[in-house]
Design a binder for these strands. Structure first.
Lengths: 222, 222
DNA sequence: GTCCTAATTAGACACCTGTTTAATTATTTG
DNA sequence: CAAATAATTAAACAGGTGTCTAATTAGGAC
């Protein structure tokens, strides 16, 4: 799984094969810090403190701050992309011409599950939202590399289910979809402000259903 | 318009009433820098250089970095909120029970116009997208202060147009709407990646129509 | 003109940044 | 056991950070 061709320190170098479990602790800590403070706002010393290691160990295991950031994004980004592909495979195997709402579900589910998996998963959703608001070249490249192949495939399948729309229109609506779910998953806790305190009426699972219906209807529009 | 109760330097203090035009130049420069690099990533020296002023003048006119940031957000955020209110006023005066798509349009138009107004307007959209991905307490407070009153009013009007939905459900869909347009306006340039190069088929004005239809259909769903 | 105050500047200040170094401890290898 | 290499550390490094200070210039009031 984890290729980890990184880290080329001089004297002692970690064994390229095993993942030392300290490396993952550092990546987890970095994920939380980057999610909370962004790339520039995150401090290497805080990451080290959170992982309970010496600051120099970050460089030893994960290279520079920039390389650390990319690795954090790639690690879980790849996991999400893979799950989306698998979901689409399963869906297409089940029905050759799936409905829009099923396609939407296949796309949303992995991200939703990750968010619900615990604080680390929720942090990664936050981090993704940040990455998508980042106009910097490096961030843009990362987004393309990780998410575009999957998105393109979904666009193709969606286009088949939406024969009244051109490919450009479907691409546009796919972008809408990404924006909606990213923002929604990230900003969900704030909803209570807008509906004056009570969102407790809606169960968590109902939220995903709601989002799915909203998006499916939007995609089908006109 | 500009209250500007800020800046309490010791020896010389800018006249509280007029806006010196240098102050605005600094705010504009800060807006661009914050939009491109985020709060932590933006450097006071770069802002000063971009405005063509001495770094100390930033503090002289706009206080600390944090205060500068808040002022940048408030300045145009208030403008957008006001335009949304005015649009809704006009719409309600025209028809007591407006359609969903008209409400959506009234909400989207100001942001769209700002984006199209030039590089500064586009920068502010980027900055807003960043602000909405920021979990920090100060950013959250700013968002609430600036955008929530308007959003609440739109939720009320939307709820009247969507009698089959509870207030919680309408609030939730309003959050979807915000996520969609923020992401879409911000990330629009990247769409060409997904549809393999050509989005030129869709005219700019058609994009807003498309977004409006997508959102209206999503809001009406079920 | 002089005086007073606002506007502006260069430079320093204290602190924080990511990263490196050289030394030390732990682990594996023979 | 020794020897070699990997893992880990404390400390320092060079450069950057926001902000302040003291001095200088500009502009009006009288």
């Amino acid at each position: 799984m984890s290729a980890s061709k990184s880290s080329r320190r001089k004297p002692g170098r970690p064994k390229e094969t095993d993942s030392t479990d300290l490396r993952d602790r550092i990546l987890d800590a970095a994920e939380l810090e980057f999610a909370d403070h962004g790339y520039s706002g995150a401090r290497m010393r805080d990451i080290a403190a959170r992982a309970g290691v010496n600051p120099a160990l970050i460089g030893y295991y994960n290279g520079s701050k920039g390389e650390l950031f990319e690795e954090v994004i790639r690690r879980k980004g790849a996991r999400i992309a893979a799950a989306r592909h698998a979901n689409l495979d399963a869906l297409l195997a089940r029905t050759p011409a799936p409905r829009v709402r099923e396609i939407v579900r296949a796309y949303l589910q992995p991200q939703w599950d990750m968010k619900e998996s615990g604080p680390l998963g929720a942090a990664f959703v936050r981090l993704q939202a940040r990455l998508h608001a980042e106009p910097e070249a490096r961030a843009l490249r990362l987004r393309r590399e990780i998410y575009d192949p999957t998105a393109k495939r979904y666009i193709t399948v969606l286009a088949a289910a939406l024969p009244h729309l051109s490919l450009e229109e479907v691409s546009l609506r796919m972008a809408f979809l990404v924006g909606t779910y990213l923002f929604m998953l990230n900003d969900l806790g704030r909803l209570s402000d807008l509906s004056d305190g009570q969102v407790t009426t809606l169960e968590k699972e109902a939220l995903l259903d709601h989002l799915q219906r909203f998006l499916a209807a939007g995609l089908r529009a006109e």
